[in-house]
Computed example of a mutant assay.
Amino acid sequence: MSYVHHVEQFHGLPTYTFSPYVNPGDLPAAESVAWRLQCGQLPAETDYGARGDAYAARFTESVDLGKIRAMVFGEPWYGDGGLADETLLDLAPRLTGLEAVFLGDLEDDEAMISTIYLQDVAPVLAAFPGLRELAVRGGEGLAFPVTGHEELRVLRVQSGGLPPEAAAQIAAADLPSLERLELWLGDDDYGGGTTVEHLAPLLTGRGKPALRHLGLQNSPIQDELAAALASAPVVARLTSLSLSMGTLGDEGAEALLLGQPLTHLRELDLSHHFLSHAMMLRLWTELEPHGVRVDLTSRQEDEGDDPDWDEEDGRYVAVGE
């Protein structure tokens, strides 16, 4: 199963890849789609920067920027890094209705997720005080030194290795309107290394009073995270919780069941896990009668139990390199 693919919908809108060869009169209404910028379709005789400039110029000539609600940046802006941020900041005065941005929408055949270079996203958030949704894919170079943002409702970071410093910055940020937070923490070998301590402000619920969905996903320390969440104050205000895509085993699931009540949740997503069949049955038996939808799909085998397996730990996250 591939977790890394082009988004087909973003911010409740279908994505539409802008082509410089389409007659402007045949384009959809500016506010009706999430505009995906991918200029790889232009002739390759010039470098990425020049191609990006020509493509962006054609886009700004063809689309009413003031009516755009959502933008998705693909290749080459994150093929060589940074151009998406520059384009956004240059166009900020004209993108008066922008509500959502996705940075780094590349698939595996375009760039492995661990090689998608990101930057400090604080200037983007500062330039768009009305931004409601921000999604980024990558990890290397990501920084989030944001003291606060009043309007952001959704923040998603898809990474094969989220820098621990960035995770700590997100955990500490004052985001009073944030309702959904999804962090793919990733593997230590690809730049990850986030610990429970890095996420401590988030687990207390400080700075994010509106949070209703929390995803701490794709992590090699999923059992430790589950144990921390078992008593974390933030859980009581959630309607859904995801510990998917990681290395969750029976120890972590046991901690969740013995901790604070989870019966107020509508959904508990534990997909891509290493649970025993007995523990899976116990989770269903204890939670689903209370109306909690428990997702236990994509059970993995712990290859560490195989005497022929050379690795010290046979568990693995869903998305690494």
Results as ranks from 00 to 15, higher is better:
Gly141Ile: 10
Thr263Phe: 01
Ser271Asn: 13
Gly148Pro: 03
His5Ile: 08
Ile113Arg: 01
Gly79His: 15
Pro176Gly: 06
Ala173Lys: 09
Ser244Ile: 03
Gly49His: 13
Gln217Gly: 00
Val154Ala: 08
Leu83Tyr: 13
Ser240Leu: 03
Ala50Phe: 05
Val63Ile: 13
Pro261Gly: 12
Ala54His: 07
Arg51Trp: 05
Asp302Leu: 12
Ala122Arg: 15
Val121Lys: 01
His6Met: 07
Phe102Lys: 03
Pro220Cys: 05
Ile170Pro: 00
Phe102Arg: 04
Gln300Arg: 15
Tyr55Asp: 07
Glu133Tyr: 03
Glu312Tyr: 08
Ile116Pro: 01
Ala57His: 10
Pro209Asp: 06
His5Gln: 14
Leu155Phe: 00
Val196Ala: 02
Ala34Asp: 09
Gln169Lys: 13
Ser177Pro: 01
Asp250Phe: 03
His6Arg: 12
Glu133Asn: 06
Gly40Pro: 04
Arg69His: 06
Pro220Ile: 10
Thr204Glu: 05
Val196Phe: 01
Leu257Asp: 02
Ser242Pro: 02
Gly49Tyr: 11
Glu86Thr: 15
Met1Leu: 12
Asp308Pro: 03
Gln260Ser: 14
Gly130Leu: 09
Thr115Pro: 00
Asp295Pro: 01
Met71Gly: 03
Met280Asp: 14
Ala122Met: 07
Leu214Cys: 01
Asn218Thr: 04
Leu42Tyr: 06
Ile170Leu: 02
Gln158Pro: 01
Glu8Val: 10
Glu321Leu: 12
Ala227Ile: 08
Gly193Pro: 04
Arg293Ala: 10
Thr15Lys: 04
Val4Cys: 02
Arg212Trp: 00
Leu91Met: 13
Gly52Tyr: 11
Gly25Glu: 02
Ala30Arg: 08
Pro123Val: 08
Pro164Cys: 09
Ser244Ala: 15
Tyr48Ser: 11
Asp313Lys: 06
Tyr48Val: 14
Gly160Asn: 11
Asp80Trp: 14
Gly186Leu: 08
Ser114Phe: 06
Leu98Ile: 08
Pro307Ile: 13
Leu118His: 09
Gly81Pro: 04
Arg282Asp: 10
Val121Trp: 00
Val101His: 01
Leu287Ile: 14
Glu311Gln: 13
His272Ala: 05
Tyr316Gly: 04
Ala127Glu: 07
Val72Met: 04
Ala56Asp: 13
Gly259Arg: 12
Asp85Glu: 15
Ser19Ile: 06
Leu185Trp: 00
Gly191Ile: 10
Glu197Asn: 10
Val72Phe: 03
Asp306His: 09
Val157Tyr: 01
Arg58Gln: 14
Asp120Pro: 03
Pro20Ser: 05
Thr147Ser: 14
Thr96Phe: 02
Arg153Trp: 06
Ser32Leu: 06
Pro93Leu: 08
Glu224Arg: 13
Arg206Val: 07
Arg137Trp: 00
Ala232Tyr: 09
Gly141Ala: 11
His149Tyr: 02
Leu106Val: 05
Leu283Phe: 05
Asp269Cys: 01
Gly304Pro: 07
Ala200Cys: 03
Leu125Cys: 06
Val4Trp: 01
Gly291Leu: 07
Asp250Pro: 03
Thr115Cys: 03
Pro164Met: 09
Asp250Asn: 05
Gly138Pro: 01
Leu152Asn: 05
Glu165Val: 15
Glu267Met: 12
Asp308Glu: 14
Glu224His: 12
Thr147Val: 12
Pro209Lys: 12
